[in-house]
């Protein structure tokens, strides 16, 4: 029987988008059955048009070309700059884009589940999400996770 991977994706930043889609697509390649349960800010990862960002603010571990004090990081445009820099770096190093990894997940049958409660909470419109998303709640996740070999909260 296939191994199972159950992931909760709760982050909606560019750096937070990589682990769920990267591990899910790789797990399928290794023969796993995979479900990702998107909740809270992770729901942003289901939008048709991804506009994910990364911020150095509140993240002192983020490498920057020059040290930028926290007080300066509130300047408009710095988040845009950090995101642009990260995307350029990812491309230079031959890392797949989030869109590319998500497409592979969809094509290879990863089950993408939107948490119904947080969809309602944030008044998200499912029409903005990519096709083929199912919805569910805590019990949906736990039913699958209860039998899973690997479970991750990201």
């Amino acid at each position: 029987m296939a191994k199972k991977l159950a992931i909760i994706a709760s982050k909606g930043t560019l750096d937070g988008a990589y682990p769920p889609f990267l591990l899910a697509s790789t797990a399928v390649a290794l023969g796993f059955e995979v479900k990702i349960f998107f909740t809270f800010y992770g729901l942003q990862l289901l939008n048709k048009n991804l506009n994910l960002k990364v911020s150095p603010l509140g993240n002192p571990a983020m490498p920057m070309p020059v040290p930028v004090p926290s007080i300066v990081q509130i300047i408009p445009g710095l988040e845009w700059f950090a995101t642009w820099m990260m995307k350029r770096k990812l491309k230079q190093k031959g890392v797949a884009s989030v869109e590319e990894l998500r497409d592979i997940c969809v094509e290879t049958g990863v089950d993408l589940i939107a948490c119904q409660m947080t969809v309602d909470l944030f008044d998200f419109d499912k029409a903005d999400f990519i096709d083929g998303i199912s919805s569910g709640g805590a019990a949906t996740y736990l039913e699958f996770a209860g039998d899973a070999d690997v479970t991750l909260y990201i």
Partner: peptide
């Protein structure tokens, strides 16, 4: 060549 994790594995599988 030039591609980073996990693309080599994904492309090998395909």
């Amino acid at each position: 060549s030039g591609l980073n994790c996990p693309l080599p594995v994904l492309k090998a599988r395909k």
